[in-house]
């Protein structure tokens, strides 16, 4: 049996809101240690992995490992209408493992709304251990998420693809669209401690800009974001969720390759 409780204004729900423009259904696995969500967009270009340890929830109980396909779009839609200070409880039982029950309790505890959400069948993916994957990357950029968001906003003025390349002591974002081009150089400053650009080998990736903008939205939930690039490999965008939590979200974005 699984039971987890969270307040409506929790980061978990904000994150679900933020990933909804990419995915509507997700594979959610729960164990005694926490919750793991994995999802891929309809075109198979972007992959999202979200990890939230059990202690981040107001209440968390899972006595048996569970894996479920959840229409998170429908779930968020239902929760949106709840009072902002309301408490949300999500339950799944072993006896009837075809749906989950989501209950919303008002702050005064005088009103409870419950709805049952049918689980969906999802194809599961085998993604290698992400931390191991990150160690192999040619270049990593740790930067304040406000910088990342600002760069993505600049880039969104050009409709097309973005090339992210390593340059001497930094990286370069270059977008070429119908109306012109845009070039952003992001360098390692001498004194800043919240920027760390490490380049093991030169690398350049071409990526679809619209996904970058979706990633920027989620990075708003964190102070820092980390981009990892490797030749011919998906871009990895990683950020912790919130300030003092061990929750984290990782995006993989498949590059454009010579056809």
């Amino acid at each position: 049996m699984l039971e987890l409780k969270l307040v409506k204004e929790s980061l978990f729900l904000n994150v679900l809101e933020a990933i909804l423009d990419l995915v509507a259904v997700a594979s959610v696995s729960c164990s005694s240690t926490g919750l793991k969500l994995q999802a891929m967009d309809a075109k198979g270009v972007a992959f999202i992995s979200l990890l939230i340890p059990a202690k981040e929830f107001q209440f968390y109980h899972c006595d048996k490992d569970l894996s479920m396909g959840i229409a998170i779009g429908d779930m968020v839609e239902a929760i949106r209408s709840a009072d902002k200070d309301g408490t949300i409880t999500i339950k799944a039982s072993d006896e009837n493992f075809r749906n989950i029950t989501v209950s919303i309790e008002s702050p005064e505890c005088n009103e409870t709304t419950s709805f049952s959400l049918l689980l969906v069948t999802l194809k599961r993916f085998c993604i290698p251990e992400l931390q191991g994957l990150l160690k192999k990357y040619d270049a990593c950029v740790q930067m304040p998420s406000v910088d990342f968001m600002r760069i993505c906003k600049y880039l969104s003025n050009v409709d097309g693809d973005v090339d992210i390349s390593t340059i001497d002591k930094g990286i370069r974002f270059f977008a070429l669209g119908k109306c012109g081009c845009l070039n952003v150089k992001y360098m390692q400053p001498e004194k800043a401690t919240d920027i760390d650009i490490s380049v093991q080998a030169p690398v350049s990736l071409t990526l679809d800009l619209k996904y970058m903008n979706s990633f920027a939205k989620v990075s708003a939930l964190s102070n820092q974001v980390k981009l990892c690039l490797s030749k011919g490999q998906p871009l990895v965008v990683q950020c912790k969720i919130g300030q003092k939590t061990k929750s984290r979200i990782i995006y993989l974005l498949a590059p454009k390759i010579k056809g």
Partner: peptide
Amino acid sequence: GRKQSTITNFFVRA
């Protein structure tokens, strides 16, 4: 031209 690759090009479906 370049074409969009997919995540499954890099990771095997379980």
